[in-house]
Amino acid sequence: MHELLISLNRLAPGSMAKVVQLSAEGPTRRRLLDLGLVAGTLVESLRKSPSGDPTAYQIRGAVIALRSEEAAKILVEPAY
């Protein structure tokens, strides 16, 4: 089961995934939690910025752009 987990920045645009765990600490963790990124939340990767980063995600009804550094700290399970 665990080999199926990837970090959110590696989720291909257009696909969905479920949040499993955050590896961020401190203020970054709080910020991500505040966006509703708790375990079990469904996230959809929408598109990358024209220059490749950040990426826009659909999170609980809002569209939020995250830089790859932050997305890398979110462990997700892709939904197929």
Partner: peptide, 11 residues
């Protein structure tokens, strides 16, 4: 180094 940030793209 840059700190973390999130940007909302409102409707």
């Amino acid at each position: 180094l840059p700190s973390s940030f999130t940007l909302e793209l409102p409707p």
